[in-house]
């Protein structure tokens, strides 16, 4: 009885303080440290880059920094970055999807699924400097796979124009953390495909391929595309792996920004700001598409 009264009272008090307007200022104390942190270390740096991008060395307003982005070498850097991100997102996305398919709809033993999830968790976090070392030992000039291919198949990768330190090499290296990430994000979507749907399709006389074309793929498509966009962004912002693999001798946008920070070549802070703002814009567009696709996929699948 007494308990009941107490809880009623507190409920009443809390109901009042939880009402959206008006805010007593005390309600805001608890979130102040977090918002100060966010302001100092996320917003302030971004705003500085953004405003810096519109100013010249003397501090006057200008658009010339963005004109600088039209320089052929910068356009090339954006282009190479986009190509590598796209190739590694599609390559990693397809491989990751097929593996996730194998352990969900493919009905492989649960032990295989658990192992795959654990390995994916590790591999998606294995990036940067050590990953570059691993691929040098694998596909570098004297790497194990390079030597094996030469000795067994008589195929000299490097005579065929392959180089670990260029487009394909970097794409293959990025795929190492891309496909496990795809496995991790797409598995729940594949789990969401209901057996009833394929049974219903079968009852209506549809074969496996018709079911996939007309039911499963349209339902999964937003998830698949969304996940691949996530992978794209993941590769687009990558710096450590590319830098330690190529020693900075590949024209990626992150590498160009890196050399602007160091101020070692063609130092032009305004251009550096514009490059960074360009990256943020691309990444923000990717995330916007990702979220709209996610909303679409949530119509059918609970993620």
């Amino acid at each position: 009885m007494l308990n009941n009264q107490v809880s009623k009272q507190t409920t009443k008090r809390d109901a009042r303080s939880a009402r959206p307007v008006p805010f007593p200022w005390r309600n805001w104390i608890g979130v102040i440290p977090f918002f100060i942190f966010v302001f100092l270390f996320i917003l302030l740096p971004s705003i500085t880059l953004l405003t810096g991008a519109f100013r010249d060395n003397a501090g006057k307003l200008t658009l010339s920094n963005f004109v600088g982005l039209l320089d052929p070498s910068i356009i090339n850097a954006y282009w190479v970055t986009i190509k590598i991100s796209l190739a590694s997102a599609v390559g990693g996305g397809v491989l990751g999807f097929l593996m996730a398919y194998a352990v969900t709809i493919g009905k492989l033993p649960t032990s295989v699924r658990n192992t795959l999830m654990t390995f994916s968790g590790v591999a998606s976090n294995f990036a940067g400097v050590p990953l570059a070392f691993a691929f040098i030992a694998t596909l570098g000039r004297t790497g194990l796979v390079t030597v094996l291919l030469k000795n067994i198949l008589g195929l000299n990768l490097y005579d065929q124009g392959f180089s670990l330190y260029s487009f394909w090499g970097l794409t293959l290296t990025y795929m190492y953390f891309q496909f496990p990430l795809m496995v991790l994000v797409i598995t729940s979507a594949l789990d969401g495909l209901k057996n009833e749907w394929s049974e219903a399709a079968e009852n209506l006389g549809a074969g496996k391929s018709l079911y996939w074309r007309k039911v499963a793929l349209p339902i999964l498509m937003p998830s698949i595309l969304g996940s691949m966009i996530l992978l794209f962004g993941n590769a687009f912002g990558a710096y450590a792996t590319a830098y330690s693999l190529t020693g900075g001798f590949i024209n990626l946008i992150t590498i160009v920004i890196g050399s602007q920070i160091k101020g070692d070549v063609l130092y032009n802070p305004g251009l550096g700001y514009a490059l960074a703002v360009g990256m943020i814009i691309v990444m923000a567009a990717m995330m916007a598409i990702y979220y709209s696709l996610r909303r679409r996929s949530e119509r059918w699948l609970r993620l």
Partner: peptide, 24 residues
């Protein structure tokens, strides 16, 4: 086919590690 994809992915996962270990 499920096994094919799993084996393919596992190779991708293990080969670089094996090569690195071998090299080290």
């Amino acid at each position: 086919w499920s096994w094919v994809w799993i084996v393919l992915g596992s190779l991708y996962f293990i080969l670089p590690l094996y090569s690195t270990f071998d090299f080290s």
